[in-house]
Write a protein that binds this DNA or RNA. Structure first.
Lengths: 345, 345
DNA sequence: TTGCGCCTTCAAAGCGCTTTGGCTAGCTTT
DNA sequence: AAAGCTAGCCAAAGCGCTTTGAAGGCGCAA
């Protein structure tokens, strides 16, 4: 509760010695260190991080820039990542600064973070296929780890990602093996890197089976429940509706399920559904009759890994190895042979 | 990019004058002020917030403590509130510090925030009926606004809440008027204040209609999709299942809908559903055939109000008036007369 | 005894800002 | 012409810490 000066006066030592004792420097006698530690605890002294930051230039804080476009709020995938990052931060003694900005000026936000020297590094969320933030952060010379990865220059920086391409390759193959030909795909925003990679995986599986991709079955957008619903509605209204649907998120899938319900269709029979499962904390788990067929990879795990990497990077000043996590394919009961069977043609 | 000293040297002025000029103090000539402002812009000087904080004792930052219990992550209601708060912060030039901690030590987190002087105030989320944080924050003497309110001492501090009691009074009355007698209620965590008030509203409506509350139809818990699902399953398995269900969140309702689907029951006919709609950014909106009957109040609006209050409080050093927002009842098509009619007993 | 090195400790500078308490020049009063 | 204001500016202290450079005290070798 007091400050260094008072504490050092109480102890009859200089501020230097007290500071060094507390920070584990070697040139202080063990007896003294103990005495200092005890006194600090007794007066529950805790160094002022602001002052320390001023003196050291380190803030022991990492930042997130959260761009909000129009009315939209933080998306739920995001918040699970932030929680995971936060947990790591707590364990390693870091704080987290959130900078909520208009999408239009989110690049300036990074400049500001740099100028303000309030953070030692940032985590970049939801990279685009070609993301201007990478360049920006490199020239600003602020340590960063990307959750996800861009396409093309991904060896120039540190990232944590899952193997999106392979996950959707597997998912699509699964549906093809069941006999599906018309497979729809509700994907994330078109410019985001993960959506691109997933689309690639999907395309590859279709190609290797000799199937043409029907662009009318593909869509991109925010991964919300309402969008999953409306997109499924659109698909069902098609002249030739798909017999199976891939969803880039269980949130979309939930909306899709609702649409099927409204059409009195049975998932896994009338229409098959396979989703990517981020293991969101509040979303549909393996409960009840519907066990969704998914490719699963906990988004919180990736978030935690990214946080650890960033802090390593900050403290050890070297760029850590990027990490590619695999998603796990899990067969549930929302996928089955097409019905009515679409064989021949 | 430089610092005050350099800037003042460039200008041939003292740091004092430059600082005063930039901060709008009166004792500096208009011409000088202009000259300083221009130079600051040209060299894109921006004061170091850490140093400023050290000097002034103000951090221009507000904090959130996010307790995580076990594996669970930040819940989605939470993240929408934080986004809204963040937006206000940005507009008013504040930053946001997130402190993610184990539930068990979340009180210590406030002490730490105080000791570290990194925030000027905090927003308290999800108050319990009788919440120890109120006392703690009062004795710590750290400005705070509660999103929600405790029961009993709510005149001792500033809060923003919605009229939960009245919202659920209305919702329940609606179902009773339709003819329902057995009305289930999936509520939030039992110790949270909002759940208590909603329960009161529900109880009052039942009472005034001369209906007994069947405790077997009530439940409390985290407001997740899986829980909505499993709880609905439990209700449907009852000897005498309810004809209508109230949900404290559309997230729960989504799970409940899924359960109904699995039982091939039609919502609004076989079972009526009324939910509280926080207008979460990514959840079921008025899309498609299912327009849920709801009591609606945007949680982001409350969050923004809380943020504004807190900053007012910090800057003007007086406690603002608390705010009670009304929820709006909106009839959708998920509620209708009981079926089979439950008339006469 | 002198000198060297090692172990502890310290005074003081510095991080970048705000703010107190002057100081000076120029004007008005009387 | 002396005294009193005021507007405009400044030097320096202080916020609470870290860190550099130095110094005091001790044991030991010569």
């Amino acid at each position: 509760m007091a400050n260094l000066k008072e504490l050092s006066e109480i102890l009859g030592l200089s501020q230097t010695t007290v500071s060094r004792a507390l920070n584990g420097y070697p040139e202080v006698a063990e007896r003294t260190r103990k005495r200092v530690a005890d006194a600090a605890r007794k007066h529950n002294y805790t160094p002022n991080p602001g002052a320390r930051g001023l003196a050291t230039g380190k803030a022991r804080t990492i930042g997130h820039v959260i761009p909000l476009s129009g009315e939209s709020m933080m998306n739920p995938h995001f918040s699970d990542v932030i929680s995971a990052v936060g947990r790591v931060c707590q364990q390693r003694g870091y704080d987290m600064l959130l900078s909520v900005v208009d999408e239009a000026e989110h690049l300036e936000a990074y400049q500001k973070l740099k100028a303000d020297r309030r953070v030692d590094g940032v985590i970049v969320h939801l990279p685009l296929s070609d993301d201007p933030r990478i360049d920006l952060l490199q020239t600003l010379n602020i340590p960063f780890v990307v959750h996800g990865r861009t396409l093309g220059n991904e060896d120039e920086y540190a990232w944590v990602d899952i193997d999106n391409r392979h996950a959707f390759l597997e998912a699509t193959r699964h549906l093809i093996e069941l006999g599906h030909r018309r497979i729809a795909f509700m994907n994330g925003m078109a410019d985001s890197a993960f959506a691109h990679l997933r689309r690639e995986g999907y395309g590859h599986a279709m190609g290797e089976a000799g199937l043409k991709v029907d662009e009318g079955l593909l869509s991109n957008g925010e991964m919300t429940e309402p969008l999953g619903h409306s997109e499924m509605m659109r698909l069902l209204d098609l002249d030739e509706p798909p017999t199976a649907v891939l969803c880039s998120s269980t949130v979309l899938a939930t909306g899709a399920l609702r649409a099927l319900q409204e059409h009195s269709l049975t998932v896994g029979k009338d229409v098959s559904l396979v989703a990517h499962d981020d293991e969101l904390s509040f979303m549909l788990a393996d409960t009840g009759d519907t066990r969704m067929t998914v490719v699963r990879s906990a988004i919180s795990k990736a978030g935690a890994a990214a946080a650890d990497m960033l802090i390593d990077m900050i403290e050890e000043e070297k760029v850590p190895k990027s990490v590619l996590l695999e998603a796990q394919f899990i067969k549930g009961n929302t996928s089955g042979p097409p019905h009515p069977p679409d064989v021949g043609h």
